[in-house]
């Protein structure tokens, strides 16, 4: 029986690895780039498109010669974790287009901010004041979204007579 990985341990490991990637393994420039789920995904896909189609889409400095492979690691690591614990199972969806559009929009806004939520906190840890503003903005966006979810759930309840 393996020991349970708590949320605190997972957070500590992730934050520490993000910083170690920079200070010990030269994952830069830019600074505070040890992890970014959006930017690293952008680097990988743009690098592949550039090499396949002869384009010149921009990537971060560290990814010019060869792209960072974080997102491949994430997918394989999470797959190993779910398969080992018998949690891998194909789940269908009724709204694949909706998910596609959400994914598209999240990437666009993340690249406007220049960070996913993880890199936003990594930038805060590195001492970037603008990232503090960015994190506050993420919190505001989440609260607006959560408010919308709550509102539409309550409306649904009212319509079905409290059921």
């Amino acid at each position: 029986m393996q020991k349970k990985i708590t949320i605190v341990v997972a957070g500590l490991i992730t934050g520490a690895l993000a910083a170690i990637a920079q200070v010990s393994f030269n994952v830069l420039p830019p600074y505070a780039y040890g992890i970014c789920v959006a930017c690293h995904a952008r680097d990988l896909i743009n690098w592949l498109v550039n090499h396949a189609a002869g384009l010149n889409l921009s990537v971060a400095g560290v990814s010019v010669a060869a792209p960072v492979l974080t997102v491949i690691g994430l997918i394989v690591g999470a797959y190993i974790a779910s398969a080992r614990n018998h949690e891998f199972k194909f789940k269908t969806t009724k709204h694949p287009l909706k998910s596609f559009i959400y994914g598209f929009l999240v990437m666009v806004f993340a690249l406007i901010l220049g960070a996913c939520p993880l890199r936003t906190i990594l930038r805060v840890a590195y001492g970037d004041i603008i990232a503090v503003v960015g994190f506050a903005a993420i919190a505001v966006g989440v609260i607006i979204g959560a408010g919308l979810i709550k509102w539409s759930a309550q409306r649904g309840l009212n319509r079905t007579g409290g059921m």
């Binding site: 998910s99 999240v106 406007i112 901010l113 960015g134 607006i144």
Partner: peptide, 28 residues
């Protein structure tokens, strides 16, 4: 930072998780 952050937070919560969580759920 404000535009990107608010949009990122809003659409992430509507999608049901941050980009990291979505990669993990896709792998499940």
């Amino acid at each position: 930072a404000v535009l990107g952050g608010v949009g990122l937070g809003l659409f992430s919560v509507l999608a049901g998780g941050c980009p990291l969580r979505q990669h993990v759920m896709a792998s499940e």
